[in-house]
């Protein structure tokens, strides 16, 4: 590839990146108008667990307990007084933390958020360590064991 072509290429890449970022920022932040009540109800009921079923959200569940919580959420949304978080907090105060589908980030429960990050850091650390070691030992010297292995393979191949 000639130099001129690669410089041109650099500019196109820069342009491409800028266009992508601009589109992301525009699309990611644009205002699509206020959420409808129904969308709010869906969003709230997705993080509240149905108290009588096993691990299903109120959004998912068709049980009567879920129906009544959904009705209460709908009533509070229609009332227009509370934010989504306040409605979730209201439900927690009323039924206890067993209706929360999202684990809290305090106490023992925080582990469920911390451990994945920890796992990722460990995995990446191992990878970096491995590359370090490979770049140190990655010389092309041939050991006696290697030669013997090759000779044996050649003998077997005959």
């Amino acid at each position: 590839m000639s130099n001129v072509a690669s410089v041109k290429n650099k500019w196109t890449w820069l342009l491409l990146t800028l266009v992508a970022i601009a589109l992301l920022v525009f699309g990611g932040t644009r205002d699509t108008g206020p959420k409808t009540q129904s969308d709010r109800i869906d969003a709230i009921t997705k993080v509240i667990a149905c108290p009588t079923c096993q691990g299903e959200s109120v959004y998912v569940s068709r049980a009567s307990a879920a129906e009544s919580i959904r009705a209460e959420v709908a009533r509070q949304v229609a009332g227009g007084q509370k934010t989504d978080d306040e409605i979730v907090a209201f439900m927690e105060a009323r039924f206890g933390s067993r209706v929360l589908l999202v684990p809290r980030s305090t106490g023992l429960d925080a582990l469920v958020w911390v451990l994945p990050v920890f796992a990722l850091v460990c995995a990446l650390g191992t990878l970096v360590f491995a590359f370090r070691r490979w770049s140190v030992s990655g010389s092309n010297t041939v050991s006696d064991a290697d030669i013997e292995m090759v000779e044996q393979a050649l003998r077997n191949a005959e």
Binding site: K46, V47, A49, S97, R98, L101, V102, L108, V112, P116
Partner: peptide
């Protein structure tokens, strides 16, 4: 795996029920 078994861990250690659900 963690999200699936975490409720068991909390129940074993602190004897309370939590749910790790879809949002997590």
């Amino acid at each position: 795996l963690l999200g699936t078994v975490f409720p068991l861990v909390v129940e074993a250690l602190q004897d309370r029920t939590i749910i790790v659900g879809e949002p997590f």
